[in-house]
Amino acid sequence: METIKSPADLEKSKAAILARMHGKEKTRIRVHMGTSGLASGAKEILEFLTLELQKRSIDADIIRAGDLGYCFAEPTIEVKRVGEDPLVFGNVDKQKADEIIEKYIKNGEYVDGILPVNYRTI
């Protein structure tokens, strides 16, 4: 990749990255994999989602992120369906992950365990 040689370069590469991210609108899943997420089994959930989405022919991006701070509800995952606000689900085990795929990712049907955004950000 090319190195960034000026603040203008940085802006350009930000625009390019954003264009690439939004160019292929599809469902985006974030698995929160900080220490507390991993300790509660986030890795198995990541593997399960990767495998199952492929098996069920669902085209989605899976991103590994850090923890959200919801240690009491780990593992947590965030799902953003195209054109919708992201939703965070807590206490996700394989069964829950399966339910999320079948109901929410496929049909947009909500499932129990949603963690509403309880903070503002900048």
Partner: peptide, 15 residues
């Protein structure tokens, strides 16, 4: 909402 995230603005959001 009581929480405001400045330090944690990107935690759990970015890879």
């Amino acid at each position: 909402k009581k929480q405001l995230r400045i330090v944690l603005r990107n935690c759990g959001v970015i890879d």
